[in-house]
Design a binder for these strands. Structure first.
Lengths: 133, 133
DNA sequence: AGCATTCATGGGTATATACCCGCGAAAATG
DNA sequence: CATTTTCGCGGGTATATACCCATGAATGCT
């Protein structure tokens, strides 16, 4: 019975597999999909606090903080205190913008590949199903 | 455009979210879904080597080794050398069997919840789409 | 038998992720 | 204005995950 298959495990496997597609495509830039996506979100919201960013990307604030620190170490993001002394303000550096530019077509190609695999409307149907979870 | 949405990120979010449903349900047993699933696989294949188990669950050998070590520390799994001195042989302990028994209905309830959310055939359609990736 | 090759694990390193706790800063309250 | 409460973050801890390298064991070939 298909009922024996854990929905969660199926999702986790798919998540790992698909992540690896993006990771491989972005590898030439020395960045992975989680980092690239976070960088994009920082760019869209900059200057942004860790808390706001965490809400946006639906990740724990401490997770976002640590992931952002990795981007900072890579020189792609700048982290400094905001007016509110409690806040860490994130902005994308020059190098970060370059990665965003160069990564875009690589990301596009994987998006296309996925859509091809899912067939027409496949991506939309998948998104709908996942949104229902 | 929906084309702006990263298929990978959608999947990762869904994976985290769904995992948390199972994790919460299994929490009373002090185990999470990754561990529960691994325990089930060990049980089905026992006695099994790390390599074989890794192939089965589609995880890196070293990942399986570390995850299994956590289960061992919890007293749910026994790890000992096999006839082939290189091999680590995994078996489920008494406590592990108890967890499998007690976890089954908890796992079932989450499966049902997911299926309810996805609607009739939803789970099947989701599985098909994910399998195409 | 002896050496080369293959094979199974383990451990190092690094990221992703979450939860909890404590500290210092800002805001609210009397 | 002083005190309390709220808020933002960093750090500790733990798991999940992967890649690479070292080591010791099994196998195969000469």
């Amino acid at each position: 019975m298909s009922k024996d298959i854990c929905h969660c495990i199926v999702l986790r496997k798919a998540s790992r597999k698909v992540s690896s597609y993006y990771d491989e495509a972005l590898a030439p830039l020395g960045i992975n999909i989680a980092q690239f996506s976070l960088l994009r979100n920082i760019n869209r919201m900059a200057p942004v606090s860790l808390t706001d960013l965490g809400v946006r990307v639906e990740l724990d604030r401490s997770t976002v903080g640590r992931n952002a620190k990795v981007l900072e170490r890579m020189g792609l993001v700048e982290i400094r205190p905001g007016k509110d002394q409690r806040e860490a303000t994130l902005t994308v550096s020059e190098a970060g913008h370059a990665v965003l530019r160069e990564g875009a077509p690589l990301w596009d190609s994987v998006q296309d590949k996925i859509e091809a695999r899912l067939g027409p409307d496949g991506a939309d149907r998948l998104r709908e199903l996942l949104a229902a979870l």
